[in-house]
Amino acid sequence: MSEPFFEYLLRLGDDRLVLGHRLSEWCGHGPTLEEDIALTNIALDLVGEANLVLQRAGQIEGAGRDQDALAYLRTDREYRNALMVELPKGDFGYSIVRQFLFSTYAMHQWEALSACADTDLAGIAAKALKQSRYHVRHSAEWLVRLGGGTDESHGRAEDALNDLWRYTGELFATDAVEQALVKQKLAVDSSSLEAVWRRDVADVVARATLTLPPDGYMQRGGRAGGHTEHLGLMLAEMQVLPRTYPGAKW
């Protein structure tokens, strides 16, 4: 078992890197130029956050790995992101619903981490909190538009919400790694975020005239390296150059 704080930073960093990567797949293919720019902005913020968090993870690990070594030279079994963020981008409605569900979680997480005992992470959190507020606002506005737009957009948004719901439980699962850090004020207890997240999500979903899905079985495994079929493929693409040319600098 590696050092818990390193492990925790990987979870934070991998969530953002993987989602940022997925979102960047929209670049050049968005429904309007304005939205192309907006989605790429969010992707840039997320990869930027991942860059800082993984850099800190490398420092904590102290084994000479920097953020690129962590991003490009770990296998999917070593990735610690929640399953939700690695799923293929789907249609625009799917990407927006996922963004809204994740960013609402991330916003509360960053808010709590702004008071983290690790001043580096606290600094990252303070900056990322502002960004994630914008991500929530942008995706919530779209969710309301899609829900209240046409029958088709309403249906697509509802489908996405239903498909993604079973991946939300993992975001709020806590474990021994996290609990050990909570006591040292290095981590936030994920289960403590669920109530505020539900309140925010229920509010926007109601404004979007959509229906919250029932809580069925919740998929999980990502925090321990057990992923869907999609992450391996994503990493094969993302890591192709550093893997093909070991040791090269770019």
Partner: peptide, 8 residues
């Protein structure tokens, strides 16, 4: 692919 989004 974006038509339904713009319509919405």
């Amino acid at each position: 692919d974006g038509a339904w989004v713009r319509e919405a």
